[in-house]
Amino acid sequence: MKTLQGIPLDYYLWLSAALFTIGVLGVLFRRNAIVIFMCIELMLNAVNLLLVAFSNYYSDASGQVFVFFIMAVAAAEVAVGLAILMLMYRNTKTTDINILNRLKW
C-alpha cells in the first residue's frame, strides 16, 4: 500500500468515517438548531479531509480545488442558514427544532 508521508491512505479513510459518524450522531442527538448546524459543518470537513487525502494520493490538484469550492459553498450556506435561524428565533423565541415539527408557527 502506497503511503502518504509514511501514513497509509486507509488511516485517513478511518478518520474521515469517524468524524462523519460523529457529525451524524450530533445531528440526531441534539435539539439545538445551532449545534446541529455545527455538526453539519463537521460532516463537510470529514469529506473535505478525505478529498484532500485522495488528491494527494493521486497527485491531482482537482480534489483540492473541489475542497476549495466546498468551502465557498459552506460559507454561503452558513450565512443563509444562520439568517434563517435568527428569523426562527425572532418568531418562536427558541432554537429548539421540536418547535418546528409542524412546519408552521
Binding site: 465557498a72 460559507a75 454561503a76 450565512a79 443563509v80 439568517a83 435568527m86
Partner: peptide, 13 residues
C-alpha cells in the same frame, strides 16, 4: 453564489 448568499442573508435578517 457568495453574492447571492450575502443578499439572501441581508434580506432574511
Amino acid at each position: 453564489l457568495l453574492l447571492v448568499a450575502m443578499i439572501g442573508a441581508v434580506m432574511l435578517g
